[in-house]
Nucleic acid binder design. Structure first.
Length: 614
RNA sequence: GGGGGUGUAGCUCAGCUGGUUAGAGCGCUAGCCUGUCACGCUAGAGGCCGAGGGUUCGAGUCCCUUCACCCUCGCCA
């Protein structure tokens, strides 16, 4: 027994069948209860909680020592498992039928008073992130870590079973000026030159296809130096995959199956039905106003541009005249919205560039009242009812603007209405494929093109001739996977021939010289027997977040960063020694005219957290 | 870069229109307590009201600046 080490069992496995056994447990002290001549404490580890009892049969010295234990101290207890007295079982706990009667106690790791109680239900994010190691002891973060592990394991198993190879790609790689801002790493060996951390392993996985790897995947960190959101971290994890000799159907079916199986492994009751529904980008924009529709509730947008082309309401007529669209959505029961609530909705529309949010309410009698109701003709009202299926007691909200602005504004209003009216089924997992994205985003002012997905995406054959003439009309062979209104991932059929790739780069306005410098190796690669290939990448943090029912991916990342991309626990990013900067071959700009540039030997960028150098 | 929210005891929060000594619950410290499991009871300690400046007889409260955290627009191929 004494040779069994620090523990013989964990804190979640002892049951009535173990009664009479001498065991040794180790774990963290939770809610010690000193009743005087009787002391209880809960011993907790990742597996569960077991009650330890120090009763009258225990030597007084041991009982006193137990009574003095601080919560969250790490101890080792040896003793005999015994059934709890009649009426003292704890039905809420898997170990609740028994307790450990202590015969020895050792303090392995004393705990200072924690900055927050481990069992508190509300603690500020700032404090949680500063003491993330304590935060992770809590039930919710622990559950998120377990869920994440199980999901990633199931995904790996699913892909392994389908002949995929997991292959690692470089973290120190080449900067790509397109897309997101790169995190740069200076090269000491090549002064003045930089590596970049990958925004995704895109080019490497395509090259692996040329290498004949056929089916590749990787669970991999990606890095993008952009401003953060609840669902965006500077480093995040993707399930990245690529297949040779595959088209969009093969990829979508495969991803659907692998995800459905993995979700089924962690949430059997929510296993998605196959096939997952598909919708084109154009249809999604038309019906929902964005490319990641939340289809858990039925409210949709209707285009009533033709109906109000000659409207007596000038805002509509003018928007149509200017080439814009007028779209409407009917909020079920929205007539009950207060003026203040409507002002709130209007503020949301304005956030997305709308000049305002026209609205009116459909009265019991069928007519419209308040808002812009008085400007609408009977025919227009009838048309609105027909277009939206609105019922008395509903409210209309209008977007009259360019297609882009009316879509963005009304889709945001649509989501807020669903939240306010509690229209969303929170148990649902609505997966949805969005297909046929435009190949390029056209900048409205300059007319410049940017890849909507990325520049390796293959245009649909029917549009290949349009690359030079009308690139804005080109449809790509790309597809996104959406879950509950959240973009889970995207992929495409890739270009695998040099001439097409060359044309796309040219359409993007890259000069021959730029193409050679940035992507020469890709074009070269495609000359040496490139198979047709297609792929996908899933944002795993988001998937775990949605499955965990959390609102932020920080909740499912062990050590996340704040909205300002800082790590509150380590203090990163920090200043570094001037010598380190010199060695890296870079020079700092003076801190923007707030203080003098640092002198040699001083730390640069602030003096805090010097102790973190180890 | 812009907009909004928050910042008061170790934690979570209250503090009305500026007005005496800034409160509560939890935690912490000490004592009591033989079946607790959010143990209970008694007593106590604990505050640069995020920081800096200003207005005022007087500021947690009003004004300006700034910092941190959260949400968000832009941004995120």
């Amino acid at each position: 027994m004494s040779s069994q080490g620090i523990r013989t069992h964990n804190c979640g496995e002892l049951r009535a069948e173990h009664v009479g056994k001498t065991v040794r447990l180790s774990g963290w002290v939770a809610s010690p209860r000193d009743l005087g001549a009787l002391v209880f404490l809960d011993l907790r580890d990742r597996y569960g909680i077991t009650q330890v009892s120090f009763d009258e049969s225990v030597p007084e010295e041991l009982r006193k020592a137990a009574g003095m234990l601080k919560p969250e101290s790490v101890i080792q207890v040896e003793g005999v498992v015994r059934a709890r007295p009649d009426g003292q079982a704890n039905a809420d706990r898997s170990t609740g039928a028994i307790e450990l009667l202590a015969s020895s106690l050792e303090l392995l790791g004393p705990c200072a008073t924690p900055p927050f109680p481990i069992d508190a239900d509300k603690v500020s994010d700032e404090l949680r992130l500063t003491y993330r190691y304590l935060d992770l002891r809590r039930e919710r973060p622990l559950a998120a870590m377990k869920l994440r592990h199980k999901l990633l394991l199931a995904l790996r198993q699913g892909l392994d079973a389908r002949d995929f190879l997991e292959i690692e790609t470089p973290i120190l790689t080449k900067a790509t000026p397109e897309g997101a801002r790169d995190y740069l790493v200076p090269s000491r060996v090549h002064p003045g030159k930089f590596f970049a951390l990958p925004q995704s392993p895109q080019i490497f996985k395509q090259i692996l296809m040329v290498s004949g790897m056929d089916k590749y995947f990787q669970i991999v960190k990606c890095f993008r130096d952009e401003d953060l959101r609840a669902d965006r971290q500077p480093e995040f994890t993707q399930l990245d995959l690529e297949l040779s000799f595959a088209d969009e159907q093969v990829v979508q079916d495969l991803v659907s199956e692998v995800i459905a199986d993995a979700v089924g492994a962690v949430r059997p009751e929510q296993k998605p039905q196959l096939p997952m529904p598909r919708m084109t980008w154009a249809e999604s924009m038309q019906r929902f106003g964005n490319d990641k529709p939340d289809t858990r509730f039925a409210v949709e947008l209707s285009d009533v541009t033709e109906l109000v082309r000659e409207s007596g309401f000038g805002v509509f007529a003018n928007a149509v005249k200017a080439g814009g669209r007028v779209r409407v959505l009917a909020a079920p029961g929205g007539a009950a919205f207060s003026r203040k609530e409507i002002t709130g909705l209007e503020a949301i529309a304005k956030d997305y560039g709308a000049k305002g949010l026209a609205w009116t309410k459909l009265a019991e009698g069928g007519g419209v009242e308040s808002g812009i109701g008085k400007f609408l003709s009977d025919a227009e009202v009838a048309g609105l009812i027909e277009a939206t299926g609105a019922k008395p007691g509903d409210a209309f909200f209008f977007g009259a603007d360019s297609f882009k602005v009316s879509a963005a504004a009304l889709s945001a209003v649509r989501l807020e209405i669903a939240r306010k009216l509690d229209l969303i089924d929170h148990a649902a997992l609505n997966f949805l494929w969005i297909t046929d994205f435009p190949m390029f985003d056209v900048d409205e002012e300059s007319g410049a093109l940017a890849p909507a997905h990325h520049p390796f995406c293959r245009p649909k054959e029917a549009y290949e001739g349009e690359l030079e003439k009308d690139p804005g009309a080109v449809i790509a062979r790309s597809y996104d996977l959406v879950l509950n209104g959240c973009e889970l991932g995207s992929g495409s059929v890739r270009i695998h021939d040099t001439p097409t790739q060359q044309k796309v780069f040219e359409a993007l306005g890259l000069s021959a010289e730029e193409i050679r410098l940035r992507f020469g190796f890709v074009l070269d690669c495609f000359k040496y027997g490139a198979p047709p290939h297609a792929g996908f990448a899933v944002g795993l943090d988001r998937l775990v977040m949605l499955l965990a029912g959390e609102d932020s991916i920080r909740e499912v990342i062990a050590f996340p960063k704040t909205a300002q991309a800082a790590d509150l626990m380590t203090g990163a990013p920090t200043s570094v020694d001037v010598e380190q900067i010199h060695e890296a071959g870079v020079q700092l700009l003076p801190p923007s005219n707030k203080s003098d540039a640092p002198k040699d030997g001083e730390r640069v960028g602030g003096a805090e957290h010097e102790e973190m150098k180890s």
